[in-house]
Nucleic acid binder design. Structure first.
Lengths: 241, 241
DNA sequence: CCCGGAGCAATGGTATACCAAAAGTATCCC
DNA sequence: GGGATACTTTTGGTATACCATTGCTCCGGG
C-alpha cells in the first residue's frame, strides 16, 4: 500500500517529493482531514503518502516553520485555530487589508476591476455557490487588492492571515455567505472611484461584518454558544481606531 | 575540523541538533556571517557545524519556511532584505505597532512601564551604547508593548517584522541611534497616561522617524545614494492614513 | 486486586549510503 | 585554436539503517 499521491495529485510531476508532500499535507489540513490538534507522526504520514520519512519530515519541518504545525517537546500537532485566534487574526486583517485597499486605489486598472466585479456578480444564485466557490471569489478579491497595493509584505501577510482564518473550523457551515457580495462590490466601487479612504472604510467594514457574522454564527452553535468571557474581551479589538 | 558548536553554544544541551542548527544558522544570518544572497549548501554547512546533513537540512527547511532562506529551483540562498523590502516592512510595522500601542494603553502596569523607562534611560551615554545594546532595548520596548496588546497574532508579527528589519544591511552603521530614546519615552509617557490614541500616534511617529533615518542615512551612502526611483514611490507608503 | 518492573513496540532524531541532475573540467576532433 | 563532447565532481534529494527515549503491555508478587 504505497499508492496515494497519484489519486488526485500530479502523476509524474517534476517537483520534489518534499514539496509535493508539503502541498498534500497542507491540503489535508485545510480540508479538515487533519483537524487542529491532531498529532502528526512522520512514519504514518510517510506510509500514507507512499514515500519515505525524509521528504515528509522536510515537509513537516517547513510547515512547522510556517506555523501550521506546532512542536511540543517531541510531538507535532496540527495548530488549531481557536475562536480567540480568529478574532485576533481578523483584528489584524482589518488593519492590513484596510491599508491595502487604500493603497490599491488608483493602482488598479478599470478592466481589472471590471473583472473582479464580474467574478463577484457571477455568484448570482446563493444556493449555487459552494463553499469552494465562495472562497475562490473571496480570495480573488482580497488577494487582488492586496497585490495591487504594491506592498508585497502586506500582500503576503494578507494571504497568510486569510489562510489561517480558513483553518478555523468555520468550514462546512451552510451559511449565507452572500452578504459579503454587496460589501465586495462596495469596495470595488470605491476603488473604481479611486477613493482610497472610501475603499479602506469599505474594507474594514466588510471585515467587521465578517467578524460579526462569526460571532452571530457561534452564538447559535451549541458547542460554541458561550466560549467563556473571552468574547467580551475580543469584541473591542477591531473597533478602536 | 568539526568543532564549532561548543565554541559559544551550549556544551551538551538537550535541544535537538536540528534546533541547535537552526538557531546557529539564524544567528549567522543576523550576524552577517551569511549575508543576503549567499548560497547555502547543506553539506558545507553541516561540516562547518560538525554534524550530519539531516538536522542541518531540517533546520534549513524550517528557516526557508519562515522566510529567512529562499529556494530558487534547487539552490538555497539567504533571503536578502532590500531597501524596498525595508520600506514595505516599515509601512506594515507602522500600522501594526501603532495598533499594538493603542491596545497596550491601560493594559500595562505602571511598574512594568517604569521598568521600560529605566531600561531606556539606562542608555545614558550615546557612545556607550553598542548596537547590540541598542537593539536589546529597542526589542524590549517594542516587544513588550506588542505583547501587552493582548493580540498574540500582532505580537508575533511585530517580532517577525522587526527581525526582518534587522536583516537589512543597516547593521554596523555607526549611527546616532539615540533620537529613538526620546521617542521611546514619549510612547511610554502616553501609555502611562493610558492614552491609546496618543500612544499610537507616538509609535507611528517613532517608526516614521526611523524610516526617515534610514532614508537620510542611505542618501549619504555612496552605494545607496540613488537607489532608482523606488524611493519616490515608497516615500508615501506610510503617510497615507 | 493492585502495584511494579521487565520486556517490547512505537516513534522521533540522526547518520549515512545511494542516486540523478547539474556544473565544471579536461579532452579530442575539426 | 575553438568548440563540442565525454568524464569527473559537486550537490540536492531520497531512502534506509540505527539509536535512544517513550510509553505500553503483560506478568508476577504482594
Amino acid at each position: 500500500m504505497e499508492m496515494q499521491l497519484q489519486s488526485s495529485g500530479p502523476p509524474p510531476s517534476d517537483e520534489s517529493l518534499a514539496v509535493r508532500a508539503m502541498n498534500e499535507i497542507r491540503r489535508m489540513i485545510f480540508a479538515g482531514v487533519l483537524p487542529g490538534g491532531t498529532v502528526v507522526q512522520d512514519r504514518k504520514l510517510a506510509e500514507q503518502l507512499g514515500l519515505s520519512r525524509t521528504p515528509v519530515r522536510e515537509a513537516l519541518g517547513r510547515l512547522a516553520g510556517e506555523g501550521y504545525l506546532r512542536r511540543d517537546k517531541r510531538i507535532l500537532t496540527v495548530q488549531s485555530v481557536s475562536f480567540e485566534d480568529v478574532m485576533e487574526i481578523l483584528a489584524t486583517r482589518r488593519l492590513i487589508e484596510g491599508e491595502t485597499a487604500r493603497l490599491a486605489a488608483g493602482r488598479m486598472t478599470l478592466p481589472r476591476l471590471a473583472e473582479l466585479r464580474a467574478a463577484i456578480e457571477g455568484m448570482i444564485d446563493p444556493r449555487e455557490v459552494s463553499h469552494d466557490r465562495h472562497w475562490t471569489v473571496d480570495d480573488l478579491v482580497h488577494q487582488s487588492i492586496a497585490e495591487a497595493s504594491g506592498n508585497r509584505m502586506m500582500a503576503r501577510l494578507v494571504k497568510d492571515l486569510r489562510e489561517r482564518t480558513r483553518m478555523f473550523g468555520l468550514s462546512r457551515i451552510p451559511r449565507r455567505f452572500d452578504p459579503g457580495k454587496a460589501e465586495h462590490l462596495a469596495i470595488i466601487a470605491a476603488l473604481e472611484q479611486g477613493d482610497g479612504d472610501a475603499a479602506a472604510r469599505a474594507m474594514t467594514h466588510h471585515i467587521d461584518n465578517a467578524r460579526q457574522g462569526i460571532l452571530d454564527l457561534l452564538a447559535g452553535t451549541p458547542s460554541y454558544a458561550a466560549p467563556a468571557g473571552a468574547r467580551e474581551d475580543l469584541k473591542n479589538q477591531g473597533s478602536t481606531s
